[in-house]
Write a protein that binds this DNA or RNA. Sequence first.
DNA 1: TCTGGGGTCCTAGGACCC
DNA 2: TCTGGGGTCCTAGGACCC
Length: 413
Amino acid sequence: MEPTILHADLDAFYASVEQLLDPSLRGKPIAVGGGVVLAASYEAKAFGVRSGMAGRRARELCPQLIFVGGRFKDYQRLGDAAIAVIGDFTPLVERISIDEAFADVRGCTHLFGSPADIARAIRGRVREELGLPISVGVARTKHLAKIASQVAKPDGLVVVDPEGELAFLHDLPVELMWGVGPVTQARLLAIGVQTIGQLARMPGRSLQRLLGPAAGEKLSALAWNRDPREIRTHHRARSAGAQSALGRKPAAPHVIRPTLAHLADRIGTRLRAKSLVGRTVTARVRFADLRAVTRSVTLDAPISATATLTEIAEELVRAALADHPDERTISLLAISVSHLEKHPKLQLELSLGLQHEARRPGTRRGLARHAADHAVDRIRDRFGWAAIGYGSTALGAVRSVPDAFRELAEREL
DNA sequence: TCTGGGGTCCTAGGACCC
DNA sequence: TCTGGGGTCCTAGGACCC
């Protein structure tokens, strides 16, 4: 079988866009972000600067590092354009994030040539039309294609021939595998496993004892290049959430209320835009020392109303804080809604709302809340998100990061 | 001056049902 | 008196990915 799976990954994406749009930044070590490095150029990576690193640490490693603010609209535009180039070759495209996608070209080789030809064409077009470097891996499986694109970086192409798969895979370090993070890497190192080949030769039993049944099984399979995953062009979301880092703030209502209201507002808006409702609400509180706790509740009836979501989240946060009375300072609040279902149509929703109220005597708020949410949603559709909000949610102070950046990270629900 | 924001999946224990 | 097992759902925590 011919290798027809492509994995395409824009190199140092945010940083590359900044260097594209501002030529004075080219060839220089730059980082997108401030408090935290969101992306680093290859010139910065040479100094050890990595994404996710604290800005201060990055500056220590690279004193001449240039921090740039972030042109989020351009990231979205150029990321979409690059993925669209892939879509010109095949409809079987699975987008993983703003700057990364899998594709299966098995059905279009008669039009465009071999998978390697197609990969070269994609790289050429993204470079010529958009001015951005993109690395591509080609293999028979998603896992191998993804590893190949990592090996190809920066700005390269690696094709893994079927005959050479295990030879290619087994010399590589385990941390290149999908699913091996810092913890697993350390656990494997403790038993002397550093390469994928060493992992492959471990007895399945001991791997499962070390990493759990699911992870052990999965890594064994991947190490032998058994990856059953196919290209999935459409994912439906299982949860929708939002979070806000706070620095250090007192665990007090004047901090918690407006923050939760803002988070609930964002989630509710996204859910309603996709006609989704959710049954489980989870709230997360992170303390000053970065330890975090969660509290969740599963409701009888699913919700999407901003006010209801806010109230439930407040209750959960109160419960979490009550269990940790010594914690006076919090550094992050988060809400997530899961057990998502498709919302019934509007008319059904109204009758459902009435039934719902009948079951919960004393609340005539359900319908009023839906009406208010829909009114706000419509105004925002016309005039933008900032045009209107629920009281304190309009507070800019609770936003530690521009909403444009949040939108970048949001996946299609 | 101790690190953003949005996700997925897995595990383990307990409740509850048959 | 003493002793079962399987399945499902919920909750809390954690590892990992981009």
